[in-house]
Amino acid sequence: MDRAPATPRGLFDRSTAGLRIKAPSYPVERGRIAFLCSVIGETNAIHFDASAARARGYPGIVAPPTFAQVIEQESTRIAEFNGERTVFNAIRADYRYLLHGAERYDFAGYMLAGDELTVCHEVVGFEFKKGGVLEMAYLHTVIESPERGPVVEIARTVIHRLPERAE
């Protein structure tokens, strides 16, 4: 019997579009900054040495741009530990099929060692691409300093490469 073309059926929970989750705040530590730098090959002294950083006009040891991910991931882990809902659990990300599609950072300030930064997530929306083979989720995160205001905004696209469906 002929079948009509299957409607794409995704894995994300689309009812979470528009959801906002305030995640736990995250303390930025110089040791963690140094660890990330060592793996990505970053050797600039502004990330390791407070006096070198100040000599170049930074208020103190400053994290490299992609440290924004660390803040977001670790804040999420604290939420998991506390038994709180996390954005990745809420959208029902399935790590067997999850790919990272895109990442954008807009900086309004610095992520500094010693900061305690707040993290707020928003589920922007979902869509299918490539005829339903890829299922996209768009996420937005704002990281703020209670003293200095917004520091960095993250726009992220994560993708399910949808598995073959048993029918």
């Binding site: 490299p64 741009p65 599609g101 895109a102 990442e103 954008r104 950072y105 807009d106 900086f107």
Partner: peptide, 10 residues
């Protein structure tokens, strides 16, 4: 770093 306003990758 002080001059980086935004960065995006695909």
């Amino acid at each position: 770093l002080h001059r980086l306003e935004s960065i995006s990758v695909r």
